[in-house]
């Protein structure tokens, strides 16, 4: 087991956001977490890094209890996050953002990894000396993903990578997720509102509602499940066409 959350509770300010969540991710899997706005998806992702810290329960990564570790130590164990809203460093250049992502990597790998990222996201090479704040939303998302990959993580967490992006970029993002997993064996935990796309790329999936896991199964099981269809897919499809 690569990552295991057992009975995790977390509070976001005064809100009790997670009520005893159990989530497991195995090596080589793409696991998706779907749920409505405010279900606690992002809190769950951030609580893996202790932001906010789990108030009860255990988080185990690669056999080690990381529940109480400082945020930067958790990242050093080999978990990388593409956070909601991207959070690139706007007043640094594209290449500096990538250097920030590579802080944990070996210095000698930097050139190789940079080349790999440029191959994956050619737009970043074009924009490499531009300040990251001037990139479009889609380009910033590419940069956030590339930055997360620069440390060669064992586990990649993606929080709403398609949020607010043009359809072309959404397609590109899911294509990258698939490629990273299928070709490079990257283990991925993906949080998405775009349930349709997310379930199709996932091996397994969880449905989070009001801070609790209410359903889990393989991607195709959940895609076929009438509850999921009613709650997330049809509504999701509608919003997608509306957007």
């Amino acid at each position: 087991m690569m990552l295991q959350l057992s009975g995790v509770h977390a509070h976001y300010g005064s809100i009790h956001a997670l009520h005893g969540v159990d989530v497991a991710v195995q090596v080589g899997e793409v696991v998706t977490l779907i749920g409505a706005n405010g279900a606690g998806k992002s809190t769950l992702m951030m609580s893996i890094f202790g932001q906010p810290r789990a108030s009860a329960g255990r988080i185990v990564f690669d056999g080690e209890d990381i529940t109480a570790l400082p945020t930067h130590e958790i990242a050093r164990r080999g978990i990388s996050l593409v956070p909601e809203g991207r959070r690139i460093f706007p007043r640094m250049t594209v290449i500096e953002n990538l250097q920030m992502g590579a802080v944990l990597g070996e210095e000698m790998n930097f050139a190789v990894d940079l080349k790999r990222m440029y191959a994956l996201f050619p737009i970043l090479e074009e924009r490499c000396t531009q300040s990251a704040g001037t990139l479009s939303g889609g380009e910033q998302q590419m940069l956030a993903i590339a930055r997360a990959l620069m440390s060669r993580p064992q586990l990649l967490l993606l929080d709403e990578p398609s949020l607010g992006l043009a359809p072309l970029y959404i397609k590109k993002i899911f294509q990258i997720v698939r490629e990273l997993n299928r070709e490079h064996g990257m283990t991925i935990l993906l949080v998405e509102q775009n349930a349709h796309h997310a379930l199709r790329v996932a091996h397994r999936a969880y449905v989070l509602q009001h801070g609790e896991i209410i359903l889990s199964g393989t991607g195709s099981e959940l895609l076929a499940s009438p509850e999921v269809r009613a709650a997330y897919l049809e509504a999701g499809q509608k919003t997608e066409t509306a957007a």
Binding site: F49, H72, L81, R87, M92, Q99
Partner: peptide, 24 residues
């Protein structure tokens, strides 16, 4: 330098800097 970048990234987003494995 690397320290300079970390210093500047802390100025812009401390949480994100920690998420990248840097001891803020």
């Amino acid at each position: 330098t690397s320290f300079g970048r970390q210093q500047r990234s802390c100025e812009q987003d401390r949480t994100m800097t920690a998420l990248l494995g840097i001891n803020v």
